[in-house]
């Protein structure tokens, strides 16, 4: 069932112009950790834009997800410096520890694994982020320890 009130608190902050579409989707993504179908239909009606347009935007940008994300979002940086300093291997290690490919969420809904083009902390490469916390100069032997901090 759709939580009408929850969606309304987001929508009332906007004037309802078509250019409000992306900020509204960002708010929904931030609060729900994904973009639920029924909510998107309401957004389309309210902004008077076709639902196809909403979906085109929701699938174009990397930050939006149409499926629910895990409790913790893990982002491994694959910027140039991180790539040179072993970012890909770090990603593979995290991926095998969690048992999921990048872009997916663990079955217990605890972790989502994503890659990111650059986090801008290149001087401390390779870098990864769990939720809002940065992990600098990561090595493969630190992966287990970091993941443990977030496991229930």
């Amino acid at each position: 069932m759709m939580d009408v009130e929850r969606l309304e608190t987001i929508l009332t902050q906007y004037e309802g112009y078509p250019q409000d579409l992306i900020p509204i989707l960002q708010d929904i993504q931030d609060q729900y950790h994904y973009l639920p179908k029924d909510e998107l239909k309401v957004v389309a009606q309210r902004l008077n834009v076709p639902l196809t347009k909403v979906y085109s935007v929701a699938t174009f940008y990397k930050m939006f997800s149409l499926v629910p994300k895990g409790r913790h979002e893990l982002r491994v940086c694959l910027g140039t410096t991180c790539h040179l300093k072993g970012g890909q291997r770090l990603l593979e290690s995290v991926s095998s520890h969690l048992g999921i490919e990048p872009g997916y969420t663990t079955a217990d809904m605890q972790f989502s694994l994503e890659t990111v083009g650059c986090l801008g902390s290149c001087a401390q490469a390779p870098v990864m982020m769990v939720d809002d916390k940065y992990y600098a100069r990561m090595t493969i032997d630190k992966v287990t320890k970091v993941l443990k901090l977030y496991k229930e």
């Binding site: 935007v57 174009f60 940008y61 990397k62 083009g117």
Partner: peptide
């Protein structure tokens, strides 16, 4: 303030403008 949504191409000026307008970049 307008926030990007994770698309490198939006650094290109016309794509960035499209993104502020609420479109794909």
């Amino acid at each position: 303030i307008s926030q990007g949504s994770g698309a490198f191409v939006c650094g290109e000026e016309t794509a960035l403008i499209a993104s502020i307008e609420g479109n794909i970049g």
